[in-house]
Simulated scan of single mutants.
Amino acid sequence: MRAAVYHGPRDIRVEDRPEPELTAPTDALVRVTHTAVCGSDLWFYRGDSDRDVPSTVGHEPMGIVEAVGDDVRSVGPGDRVFAPFKISCGSCEFCRKGLHTSCTDGDGWGGDNGGAQGEKINCPHADGTLVRVPDRYADDEAALRSLLPLTDVMGTGHHAAVSAGVGAGDTCVVIGDGAVGLCGVLAARRLGAERIIAVGHHEDRLDIAREFGATATVADRGDAAVERILELTHGGAAHVLECVGAASSMDLAAAVCRPGGTVGYVGVPHGLDDGLDLFSFFGDNVTLRGGVAPVRAYAEELMADILRGTLDPAPVFTETVDLEHVADGYRAMDERAAIKVLVEV
């Protein structure tokens, strides 16, 4: 099969790789039809995080089930499915609590299971991991494009909003104009927020934030951004979504969170080598909640809204490539020429 393979910083190649096979009765073999390039993929792509060379890449698969192990009950051959970025058993203590990312037998995509930016994957724990798309939407390309962000960014943005405690009538601040931040705006609107201030540095992305429901946008940096947000929120917001993971974005979140408020953080941490200054959180009794998003826990409820037409994260895909040109997709995101790249396999 063909699959994207990492060979070092800014070196992604599409190569022939062995096809994955069923290895356990709980596995499912899936032919991938859609996948994506994630902002977190850029950390190894840029050489900012370690990764084996060579190694298959990708963690946002959607496709058609080709075969299942004898113990699989929730999906069968021919079913359209998508999978979160983490593999989970669905039955351990943490999966039962909705914390699938802490599954006691969890795993990621890559290695022997094929990597998700390739033609096939083997999914361990198929019943706990795969989400089946209703048959009537199985070949609806528009619906599939809208569902694909549930593998990661839409569920992650939703986790930020839930962690920040966003509810009906609230005012919130969303920090970050990448795919996760934009999905955080969608999630805040879905949860009933009345005022949503989106913060970022790219006007084209902030335009999408407004389309997604942001009632105001802030493109300033540093102290100017803090002043503008405090002005818009009359002293700070009780609910702040941190969707970047940088030290500067965490500092901004603390600065604009109202005393007694909550910061929901989902940005993959980077640039925090000197540690995080917790004094501002401590001094104002600001709660810090979040972490890596258990997107499997949110998949069915978000899918229901997408299929009924009340939620659509598809506009985060601003470029589409085929598998053979996936390196172009990485390059576009690295150069900020694309927000998120959809890969057709």
Rank of each mutant, 00 (worst) to 15 (best):
D170A: 13
I87S: 04
A187V: 07
V65L: 13
D170H: 14
G200T: 01
D11V: 09
P61Y: 08
M303D: 03
D70T: 13
C38H: 10
V75E: 09
L206A: 06
V341A: 07
G267H: 00
L182S: 11
G98S: 00
D177Y: 01
D204A: 13
D105K: 10
R73C: 02
R145L: 06
G236N: 07
G290K: 11
G111Y: 05
H234F: 06
A247C: 00
V162F: 06
T262Y: 04
L99Y: 02
F94M: 11
G155A: 05
Y137V: 06
S146F: 00
R132P: 04
L276D: 01
I12D: 03
G98C: 01
A297T: 14
E301M: 13
M62R: 10
D140K: 06
D48R: 15
V316T: 14
M154K: 06
N113W: 01
D177I: 01
A314Y: 09
R331V: 11
D127C: 03
A138K: 07
I229A: 04
N122F: 00
A143D: 03
R132F: 01
D207F: 12
P149R: 04
R136I: 11
I175S: 03
V30H: 10
R205D: 08
L232I: 06
G309D: 10
D127A: 02
I339V: 15
A4G: 09
C89T: 09
R258F: 11
V244D: 00
R190K: 13
V341E: 04
A179K: 02
K340W: 05
L150S: 00
S249I: 01
V53S: 05
R189W: 07
V316R: 08
V263K: 04
D105P: 02
